[in-house]
Each structure stands twice: as C-alpha cells, then as structure tokens.
Design a protein around this nucleic acid. Structure first.
Lengths: 367, 367
DNA sequence: CTGAAAGCGCTTACAG
DNA sequence: CTGAAAGCGCTTACAG
C-alpha cells in the first residue's frame, strides 16, 4: 500500500471536515457551497478558507441523492459508431448543448448490435442518467417503454423508433433530390447502393430513389439496385458488379458515406470515375479535392445533435407535449461527380474514351 | 403536471419497494441484486419476481456512496476536439477498453482552451470520476497535482504534462523519418508547416524535421518554415506563400492533419500537386484516392486510447509504479505525393511541365 | 441463511 | 442568520 507523492494518501475531505475546520455546522458549509447568500460574512469567509486549505470538492452524486428532483445532471448518447465522422460531430454538438446547462454526457457505440445497445442503455439507467439520446438499431424498440416508465427521458436520433421524440434528416426527400439531380442530366440508368434495409435511413433513402424515378416516369430496375450493403468493402464489390455487368448504370446514387467511399474506390480502380456519375449521401472529408469532386447530400449532424439535446433537456425539465419529429434539412453540394453527363445514347461507357466535359447548361440544382 | 403515457407517473421503485413486495428485508434484496449466492432459492425467487414486476433498477450512485472503495466506475476523457477523427478514434478505443471493465466514459472537448479544460476536469471530479484521460492544452499543468491529490487518477494522451503517465506517438522520430523520406528522394528544399508551437506534438515534430536535416547534412532554412499555423485555412495560405515565394521548397512536410488538408488544397489550386512532394503527419480519410495519393505518417489513435485507458484503470486499481511514458509507433504510408522527385536541378518547378513519373528505384521506406 | 441498525456525503424540513 | 435531526438508496458490520 505504498503511495507515491502523485497518488493520494489522505481520504477526500467532506463537508464534515470543512465544517470542523471552519468551526461551523455542516449545514452552513452546504449553504456556502450552494451559494446561499444568507450566510454571514464571517462564517462564509471561514468556510471558504477551509474549503481552499482542504481542497474540498463537492460530491455531486451524494448531493443528487438527497436532492428533491434527484437529477444526476448527466445524459447519455448511444450511437452506431462514435468514431464515424457523422456520429462524432453529432456527439460533439450534444456535449456542447449539454454543457450550456452544466449537464455531462456519457457515450457508447452500439455497432448496430441490439444487445450492445440495450446493455449500454441499461448501464446508463443504472447510473440514473436523466435522459438518453439513442440512434436505435431498429424501429422495434418496445423495451424503450420500460426505460421511459422507469423515468429516463429518451430522444431518438437519425432514425425514429417507438413513437418517441426523434430528430432526423429529410432522408427521403433528399434521396429523391439526389436521384433527380442525376436524371435531370440525362441519366436513364441510375444505380443504387443501400445500407442494411433494417435501418430506417437506408429504407427512406431507397424510397426517395424510387420516388424520383416515378416522378420522372422511368421504370424501376431491380438489376441496378444493391441493398443490404454494409461497409465500404462490400460497397466496392457491389459497385464493380453493377458497373461491369450487362446494361450497366451510367450514374450511381450511393446512399451512405461508407458506400460512397467504396464506390469511388471501385470507379477509380476501373478508371471509370470520369465516366460514371456519382452522388453520395453524407459528406466526406476531402471529397472536394478528389477528381472529380464528389457531389453529396450533406447532413447537418451538428444541428441534429443540438436539437436532440435541446429536446431531451426539455423533456427532463418536464415538457409533456406529444412526441415530436424534427426533420433537419440537408444540402446538395455539387462538386463534379454528380454533374457528369451520360455517354452518348446507345453507346456503352468506354474506358478508352476521353472524359466528357460537364455540360454547364445542366448545372442547376433545384430538384 | 399532466403526464402522458410515455412519461413516467409513478416514482422509481427502490430496494425498499422490492423488499416490501417480496416480503423480505432490504438486505436480502441487496444480496440478490449483487449476486450473493447464499440467499435461499425461495426468497431469491420472490425477490427476482418483485424486481421484474416493479421494473426495479439498482441505483449505482447510492451503492457507490456507501461502498468501501467509493468507486464511481466512471472515467472521463478531455480531448482537443471530439469531432476530429484522431480524437474520435481515440475516444472510441477508450470506451471499448472501459466497457470491458464495466466502466463508463464521460467526455468533453477543450478546443485548446486551458480554461475550458480546467472547467471540464472540475466538473468531472465533482462527479467523482475515478480517473481522467487528458489531452493537455499545455505542458504547464501544476493544477493537475491538486486533482491527483484529491484522488482522481490521470493519464495524459498525445502530449505529456506534469510528469504524469502519458501515451504519445513517436512524434520526433516519425517526423525525422518523414523528412528523410523526402530528402532521400533528392529534395534539398523541404518546407515545414507546424501547428501552434505551445503544443508538444508541434514542437516534437519540428525537432524531428530539424534532426533529419542535420542527419543529412543540410542547412536549416528559416524561410522554408511556417510554425504556429492553426487550422486548414491558415495552412492553405501559408503553403501558397511558401510555394510561390522566391526559392520555393520542392517538397513539404505538413506536421498535422488539418495542415495537410490546407497544403493539398493550396497545391491543387496552384496546380502544383504533381510537382511539389508532400508528406503529412496524421492519416486522412480518402487520402489514398487523391491524385497523387497523400503519403502520410499514420498515428495509431486507437492504440493510444486503449493504452491510456489500461494505464488509467491500472492506477485506479492501485498501481503505484512511477509515472510511465508509453510511446506508440507510427507508420509511414507511401501513396505517391511523398515520392514525387524534385525537378531537374537548377530548374524551378514549372506548371506546364508534365508530371514526372516517380522513380521506382527510390521507393524504399526505411529511414 | 436472514435481518435490524448504522452510516456513505449531502440536503430537506424544522426549529430557534 | 445558524444548526440538530432525519433521510435520499444503498452497503457495511454485526447479530442471530
């Protein structure tokens, strides 16, 4: 039990220690610590001196335990993968919004595993977090009702679930816009790459793709579609299959950031990146520096995080309104890849053909 | 005070409620909840039934308050910017390592502001976190001693501070390796872009750059160096200045990821990206898909996070060894930009000259 | 194997 | 303005 100088030796001082040193009651210390102004200057001075000398720190959990509302002033965030840029930005926005109210934030990654998700939420509720922001692994979240009943506020993020508060992007409309962006440039065969179809956003974006086809009067072609693609490597393989198959697409809509990365990699490997148009969902670092730059639908992950945090804290503060669905607008950012025109009609894209210059006349972006 | 069905109405059940329903003492409930096996099957069954019916959840903080060790089983992470990919990956690795021991993780961003940093640490210690992983804003961290004395374990990450445990990359050696990589290909004028020099890593990487010059017997030229560059836009301007100035560098070593992004943008704008060699510190998403691909020193942020978490948890468990400095190796990943040879001697790089093919004979990577 | 009493660090609810 | 008693939800330390 040898403690070096950089390890604590003495037990942590408590209010009792401070009270003894300042020769006041523990209650007076409590008043000073909590900023109650009715304490006399003399006593308050002695208490503050003792706090400084002892290095006293209030014990937040003990305080919360006895307090009326029992708030922990802590919330939690459960996202698919905190290391993913989308989740990381969202997470940071939650922390910033929470900080403004002196609320701390715990976090976990679910990796789309419902068991991990439930385990994380259980661990958080055991710590009596005041609320949880959750990116639900599936829409089937009956178990959430139990958590709610137990007094933990909940707000879904990125995907709705359980009929609770949710903050999402305008996925379907944005996907339709992305697809229309390609159709408007003359593409008739637009391929689709989609994430696991259990995931709400994957389904919505697929529906948006279908919407745009229907709106434009083009038939849906199953052979141009690959769904349930999870991660960038499967996406790369799927893109290669699509583009090297018979009747290949002249454009791709990749409906998630990892899928976009895989598709870009595939097109470059095949040297088709200047021939096959591409619009991705989710912005990507450096996408503007590629040649061509990658046209994307950018989500406002920071705004999603901020709104989710605000909604959650409102619930914690007793907001009893019916559940609310916040839809956050996205932005289509044309950078080149989405503005590649289709090859001349009745000709298949050809590797040895020179890159066709984009048609400036077709660069409008309103769907 | 109208509570909808999705808001809790009844107060949270406690052990007392469970005990009453199961007709046992509160202590027996405690035993069952904590997995003490000596409880009779009959009583244990009644208790578990009551727990299920009531939806009882243990109150972790109350438990910790009374427990001998008083552990909160919570740690905290304070990084420069949680949304930065390096920090996000590190953070995630910390969470994964902590989860294996049922430890939860709080997080905050300091944005290199010492006041924000201290505020965050104070908030965490008030919650009685067992330890903090900190990316210190400066090496001057006398105040950390107080936190340590108060019983909070601390491990620095990315940069050492206060003579405490730290986990860092082999910054200086890696920077020397990166610079030598360029020198070995014949570059004689290698430019340097560095972050704020207060930051330990910025200084170390600068020293590594100097080491390599000295090792190779080349003079240090102040005019090739820009330090205190913070963020990608200033980096872009600095790179433009360097490269368009008199006696411009034929290669750049950009010693942080945002600086690399800025430099890449500058070179592309000037259409010099195939003429001026570039090695960056920190890997970047999609760096391999640029033309040329960006040669980088990749840090193992996940390993840094994992080691920091392990070290911290060892301290929390009473490890009393002297402070330890973990140095995590980096990896040089050649992708093209770092292998661009210098232009023919006595000729300035020329925008209209065709890109020179990399010399395969010079592609070794050991410094 | 089971339970009544005391107490973790703090605040509430009362008194003075 | 100040303080003694009780109690937040739980575990420790004892008894039986």
């Amino acid at each position: 039990m040898s403690e070096s100088s950089w390890r604590r030796a003495a037990p942590r001082p408590t209010m009792r220690h401070v009270a003894a040193r300042a020769r006041v009651s523990i209650k007076t210390v409590s008043r000073v610590v909590n900023g109650v102004t009715s304490v006399g200057a003399d006593l308050a001075g002695r208490v503050n001196a003792a706090i400084g000398e002892l290095g006293y720190r209030p014990h937040h959990a003990a305080s919360a335990l006895r307090r009326r509302d029992g708030r922990s002033s802590t919330i939690a965030v459960v996202l698919e993968d905190l290391a993913n840029p989308f989740s990381a930005a969202l997470h940071r926005a939650v922390i910033d919004a929470a900080r403004a109210r002196s609320v701390l934030v715990l976090a976990a990654s679910s990796d789309e595993d419902p068991a991990d998700e439930r385990e994380a939420v259980a661990a958080f509720t055991a710590r009596r977090v005041d609320g949880v922001i959750l990116m639900p692994t599936s829409a089937d979240h009956g178990w959430l009702a139990t958590e709610l009943a137990a007094g933990t506020a909940m707000v879904m993020v990125d995907r709705p679930a359980g009929g609770l508060d949710a903050v999402v992007s305008d996925n379907r409309a944005a996907a339709a816009r992305a697809t229309a962006h390609l159709l408007r440039r003359g593409h008739r065969r637009v391929g689709f790459l989609g994430d696991l179809r259990d995931i709400y956003t994957a389904e919505e974006r697929f529906l948006g793709y279908c919407d745009a086809l229907e709106e434009a009067g083009f038939p849906f072609d199953d052979r141009l579609v690959r769904r349930d693609v999870y991660g960038s490597e499967p996406a790369e393989r799927a893109a290669v299959e699509l583009v090297t198959g018979p009747e290949p697409p002249t454009a791709l809509f990749t409906s998630q950031n990892l899928l976009t990365v895989g598709a870009v990699r595939a097109l470059r490997t095949l040297y088709l990146h200047r021939d096959v148009a591409l619009v991705g969902f989710d912005d990507i670092v450096l996408a503007d520096l590629l040649e061509p730059g990658i046209t994307v639908i950018a989500q406002d992950s920071a705004e999603i995080g901020r709104l989710a945090a605000e909604q959650l804290m409102a619930r914690i503060d007793g907001d009893g309104q019916p559940p609310r669905l916040h839809v956050v607008p996205t932005r289509l950012i044309p950078r080149g890849s989405g503005e590649i025109p289709p090859p001349a009609r009745r000709r298949r894209p050809n590797r040895s053909s020179p890159p066709s210059p984009p048609s400036p006349a077709s660069l409008g972006d309103i769907a």
